[in-house]
Design a binder for these strands. Sequence first.
DNA 1: GTATAAAGTTAGAGGAATCTAACAAATAAA
DNA 2: TTTATTTGTTAGATTCCTCTAACTTTATAC
Lengths: 219, 219
Amino acid sequence: MASSTEENYLKVLFNLTQEKTEVPISELATHLGVSMPTVNSMIKNMQKNDWVIYEKYKPVTLTEIGKKTAALIVRKHRLTEMFLVNKMGFGWEEVHEIAEQIEHIHAKKFFERMDEMLGFPTVDPHGSPIPDKQGRIQELHYKNLSLAQAGNQVILSALADSSSDFLEFLNSRELKLGMELKILSREPYDSSMTVSYGDRKSETLSEKVCEKLLVRLVE
Amino acid sequence: MASSTEENYLKVLFNLTQEKTEVPISELATHLGVSMPTVNSMIKNMQKNDWVIYEKYKPVTLTEIGKKTAALIVRKHRLTEMFLVNKMGFGWEEVHEIAEQIEHIHAKKFFERMDEMLGFPTVDPHGSPIPDKQGRIQELHYKNLSLAQAGNQVILSALADSSSDFLEFLNSRELKLGMELKILSREPYDSSMTVSYGDRKSETLSEKVCEKLLVRLVE
DNA sequence: GTATAAAGTTAGAGGAATCTAACAAATAAA
DNA sequence: TTTATTTGTTAGATTCCTCTAACTTTATAC
Ligand SMILES: [Mn+2]
Ligand SMILES: [Mn+2]
Ligand SMILES: [Mn+2]
Ligand SMILES: [Mn+2]
């Protein structure tokens, strides 16, 4: 049974291995907010528990067991976020910190009941996929908005950044998941985009913002 | 800020000081499932934090600060139990273990939202009072069913034991809080009582059970 | 009122998770 | 290809929470 600390290490590893499979110690240290020696010694324990593959001076890899264990924590995290938003009326910018704590609760039934009440959701309030009970996660092949062309119609489907700062920015522009955006133009100089959606006839979004918006093309 | 461990010590102290104000180290040890030396050293820390009054070889007393801190944890525990039963469909026998973990979550808003959704309840699913936001707890002056007389009409209002074993026993007899019971007779030999309630015309309850049922007399 | 038992304390140790300081290896730059 | 920088490791210490063994104080029994 993983401690809360180990669960946090597993979760960070899981999130960082969605792109490349290997994670350097330094990256774990920054993401977890602890020193490198701390990570070094923790990773040695986790290796004994068969959660990671590790060799001196080499980056860390999750084992299959580790991947599944991690996915089940991410599942609890994302189910919780969904529950807080859909059943308790929280804003999507408020839930991450709370879920960060509730994900460590050991009470299968509690999360099963959430899942039921929510109608077995497959994505969280930020559009990230919720791993299933077996720890399998579906690959969502969204496109970066910054890669869309003028004239395209897209549906805002997920976010590449779920920080409250970014979520509050999206709130201020009334941008929500599921919305249809029309790309009016793309400024070649700074890669900003002008789009329309909902009641907003023309909004300009910086490259930085567009890179964080994941979309699906309409047909 | 109290650690989860300290919070558990405070909560046990709070519960044990509802009767007598002083708690011996040995009692804390058994209720917390740790050794006496562990309690001894922990109590010394808690004394430095001004949560308890303690002198060598003397039993432990909560300070006003300690009492309030403890009450606010009990508040979180009982609000959670109420939420699990009334909003998530759990049975009253299932919720204590889950609440034991959730009570340590640091997210004011989370419990405030629960409180709102529940309509600001004053008692938990077992009839125990929920301390208010200031940590004040109301004294409920219920009577022990074992002290009732034949002929009395009473309302089952709270429980002196919330163990799942006892709650499952009550489930098997269809006994719920708020029910009106008529005391038909009282057997002098073993202090058992025969009562009627709901559809049940005649049920005999042992002294052990009656002592755990807290009731309010009907006028 | 002494002897026995129960309750409480001290001393010393260990595991988990963390740190800083010092050193070593790997990588990038000159 | 040396040198400098970045990354990673080791050693040693700290805090928190826990234990067992040994001892002391207080309470109970005779
Ligand atoms: Mn999150
Ligand atoms: Mn966490
Ligand atoms: Mn409880
Ligand atoms: Mn607890």
